[in-house]
Design a protein around this nucleic acid. Structure first.
Lengths: 296, 296
DNA sequence: ATTTTTTTGTAATATAAATTACAACAATAA
DNA sequence: TTATTGTTGTAATTTATATTACAAAAAAAT
């Protein structure tokens, strides 16, 4: 019975490495713990026993064999481990002086992004998604894009694609001095697409509050901690951003934006393609910057 | 008191949207729940009360005001939400396919992106990656970022992070009229980070050719069909871009950029954090955009 | 087959947690 | 100031949870 009660490494490793010292029923408990990580271990003993189809005391014996003083102690450890994974990037880096992973530097980061996209996949509500598509697809409703310090380039990326696809797409300029004019003209037909992640910007919130007062529709892209704009937004997309970095990731949001563009395009590709053709014709005389035209 | 006990959407949204109906102490409880998501809510009432510096009953009142039948009910909901986030992305996607999820429009696109990131993972050469990191980490070498029509926002995204991390980072302005001055001053110490995807822009190529003549180091991010700049670039990252859309995806490139930023940061996080602190201090007097400060 | 050892569950007990009732306190209005 | 309302904490109560003791059952050894 190893004393692991004070080590905070990894619950999964701990359980797995002690698996062979457990009896058959106890092993079922351990497997349940792994299979339904982390929530199984956060239930009561009775609930966990029920899931694993064993008795309460068997659960308790398992936990003790894994080296925990009590079930409560085990749960505390689990919670600590959990919190680490959920903590703000800054804290994370400082706490765990990361191991020098010299050889395959791209892998862990890419994996975290995969995870995030999967998460986004789950958290994006289909109805909300489709509602937003319909909203933006309506060319009679002007669209205004607004980003914060960290999200400006996302707003620009979306702007670039949207205003190829449809008319009346505008990006709210960075200079706040120009905002009053923009806000003054907003109305019930207008759609505000706003990006706001930590640290949330008060000025962006103020813009949205004014827009809301004028009846504009607000679509918010934010992080899992939710911008305060969430309280007034009509549609909210909380995107996962956790990666092994001091900085948050914008990847899952970009995936969603690209997907929205793809869907809009799909929805009325005929008129859009006609529009693109005309735009190209217009671009030609302005400057010819083509080199190796289309590639098969 | 809304009945949210059965909705499984997002705990964060729920809490934030009911924030204004709470009393001051109750709001502290709610903020603690958000700040230490998810573990605060998995503690006992007493423990949560301790963290928030309120009494047990205040915690309970908060939970009830948020629409939960009991504290246990609240915890069950939290656990359910948690479990969703911890399931492997693939399992999750498969699950949502089996259930009559009408049409999950996000899934195929997200899967294509996952594919692309995996591909990028394969194609990014570790040596090249590390060489580029070392290059950019050298603060004595000025960095110039240049993007095309489609990649401008990527260049900006990278610029935004790089110039927080280190000095002498510049973005080449969109207006070509200003380019001669930029090019004229380029030399062997300068690093050009250029983004060029189909349809490749002649002007961007011309810029790079001039830079090359002056001995500058060129790092190229392009698509799988390779920009003509590839023939003169010192480092080339061909990123996969195929998605079920009329437009190419920038997701895998963004992952790589973020990863580079993360690695640079890791490499000398001490000096960078000092730099960030000073930058923040400088920002403070300019505008104070803080809203929900830290909770004990 | 019988004993011994190990594993598991049942039921009782002790402990800890949630919940309730009520009183003190603070804020607001008359 | 005083009455009124709303907010918060204390202490009692109830509920449920973990833990223990012990016996039944299963497995292994003699």
């Amino acid at each position: 019975m190893a004393d692991n009660s004070n080590q905070s490494s990894n619950m999964g490793i701990l359980i797995r490495s002690n698996l062979d010292q457990l009896t058959s029923k106890e092993r079922i408990v351990a497997r349940t713990l792994l299979n339904q990580y982390p929530t199984a271990g956060l239930c009561t003993i009775a609930a966990l026993a029920e899931i694993a189809n064993v008795s309460g005391p068997t659960v308790l014996r398992t936990i003790k064999k894994l080296g925990f003083k009590s079930y409560g102690n085990f749960q505390t450890m689990l919670r600590k481990e959990l919190q680490l994974g959920f903590e703000a990037p800054l804290d994370r880096v400082n706490k765990s002086e990361t191991s020098p992973n010299t050889d395959a530097p791209f892998v862990p980061y890419a994996e975290a992004c995969l995870q995030n996209i999967g998460l986004a996949n789950m958290s994006v509500n289909s109805n909300e998604f489709n509602a937003v598509i319909s909203l933006i697809a309506n060319e009679n409703r002007p669209v205004f894009l607004l980003g914060g310090r960290f999200t400006d380039s996302l707003a620009r990326y979306f702007y670039f694609h949207l205003h190829i696809i449809r008319p009346h797409v505008h990006i709210v300029p960075q200079q706040r001095e120009t905002w009053p004019e923009v806000i003054y003209d907003l109305g019930v037909k207008d759609i505000i697409i706003v990006f706001d992640v930590r640290r949330y910007q008060r000025d962006v919130l103020l813009f949205c509050e004014q827009a809301k007062k004028r009846g504009s529709h607000i679509i918010l892209f934010t992080d899992q901690w939710l911008s305060p704009i969430a309280t007034i937004a009509d549609h909210i997309f909380p995107m996962p951003t956790a990666v092994p970095s001091q900085w948050d990731s914008a990847v899952s949001t970009l995936v969603l934006l690209e997907c929205i563009v793809a869907k809009l395009n799909e929805r009325n590709h005929k008129s859009i393609n006609a529009r693109i053709k005309k735009l190209e014709a217009l671009r030609q005389p302005l400057h010819s910057d083509l080199i190796g035209k289309e590639v098969p």
